Structures are given as structure tokens and as C-alpha cells.
Amino acid sequence: MHRFAPAVLLCVSACGPVSLAQAERECLSQARLAEQPRGSVGVGIGSDGKPKLRGNVTITSDYLQGRDPSQVYQNCVVRRSGEFPSRSYSSIPAASL
């Protein structure tokens, strides 16, 4: 059992809180997805000469349930870091997102 102790400690420590700055960075995308769905579309020509169309859409349960993106951001940061965000979601410039 003792030989597994370092691996267990490593796994448990990986589940611990992250820094406030890291939590804020990681939670931005979650808050953005609470505002509206996101997606992308790609169009091209395959090697066979035929047109190719590719796309994806991401819709979260936060969006579907109408959750406030600012509250989603705050809850996420607190959950990940154990601290409140250093600034509100609404004060973050759109370019940072």
C-alpha cells in the first residue's frame, strides 16, 4: 500500500484549488457560453475535389436554464479557487474574452 501513496497524493492534490488568476481565466469561457451558444462553420474543397462543410455548436445547460453569466462566472471562480473573483464578469473587456 505504501508504494501507491505518492500516486494517491498526487491525484488528490490535482483536485485542490487553483490560483485565483487561473480560475478566472478558466471560468471566462463558461460564463461566455452562459450568454449565448457558440459555434463555427468551415467550408473547403476536399482532396477529391468535392466541397466539404463542417460545423459545430456548443450550447450549455447554463444557457438553456437562463443563468446569469456573471453569477456563473463568480460561482465557477469560487468553486475552483476558493476565493471570490478579483473583478466582476461585467467589468472584463470583451476583447479579453
Results as ranks from 00 to 15, higher is better:
His2Cys: 12
Leu33Met: 08
Ser90Asp: 07
Ala7Ser: 12
Ser86Val: 11
Pro17Leu: 05
Pro69Phe: 04
Ile59Ala: 15
Arg54Leu: 02
Gly55Arg: 07
Pro51Thr: 15
Ala21Ser: 14
Val12Ala: 15
Leu10Arg: 08
Leu64Ala: 09
Leu20Gly: 01
Ile45Ala: 01
Asp48Ser: 14
Asp62Arg: 05
Ala31Arg: 03
Ser40Cys: 15
Ala5Trp: 12
Ser91Phe: 10
Arg67Gln: 13
Gly44Ser: 07
Gly16Thr: 07
Lys50His: 06
Ser70Gly: 13
Cys27Gln: 05
Gln71Arg: 04
Arg38Tyr: 10
Val43Ile: 14
Leu53Gly: 11
Lys50Glu: 10
Tyr89Asp: 01
Ser96Tyr: 01
Ala94His: 12
Ser19Ala: 10
Arg3Pro: 02
Cys27Arg: 02
Ile92His: 03
Ser70Asn: 10
Leu9Ser: 15
Tyr89Pro: 00
Cys15Ile: 13
Gly46Thr: 11
Ala21Leu: 13
Pro51Asn: 15
Asp68Gln: 04
Arg38Cys: 09
Val72Ile: 07
Pro51Ile: 15
Ser88Thr: 12
Ser91Gln: 14
Gly39His: 06
Pro69Arg: 06
Gly82Asn: 05
Gly46Ala: 11
Met1Lys: 08
Ser86Phe: 08
Val12Asp: 13
Lys52Arg: 15
Gly55Cys: 08
Ser81Val: 09
Ala7Asn: 11
Gln36Ala: 00
Lys52Asp: 13
Tyr73Glu: 02
Ser91Cys: 12
Pro93Ser: 11
Gln74Leu: 10
Ile92Gly: 03
Arg25Ile: 11
Ala14Asp: 06
Pro6Phe: 08
Ser81His: 06
Gly42Phe: 01
Val41Ala: 10
Ile59Glu: 15
Pro85Gly: 08
Gly39Leu: 06
Ser40Met: 15
Pro85Lys: 08
Cys27Leu: 03
Arg38His: 12
Ser13Gln: 13
Gln74Pro: 01
Gly46His: 06
Thr58Gly: 00
Tyr89Thr: 01
Arg32Met: 09
Ser19Lys: 08
Val8Gly: 00
Ser86His: 11
Ala95Lys: 04
Cys76Glu: 04
Ala34Ser: 07
Cys76Gln: 04
Ser81Asp: 10
Val77Tyr: 03
Ile45Trp: 00
Glu83Cys: 08
Tyr63Phe: 15
Val57Cys: 00
Phe4Ala: 15
Pro37Leu: 07
Val18Leu: 01
Asp68Ser: 05
Arg79Gln: 09
Arg67Ser: 06
Ser19Cys: 07
Ile92Val: 11
Arg67Cys: 03
Gln36Thr: 00
Asn75Gln: 11
Ser81Gly: 12
Cys11Ser: 13
Leu33Ile: 05
Gln22Gly: 01
Gly44Pro: 04
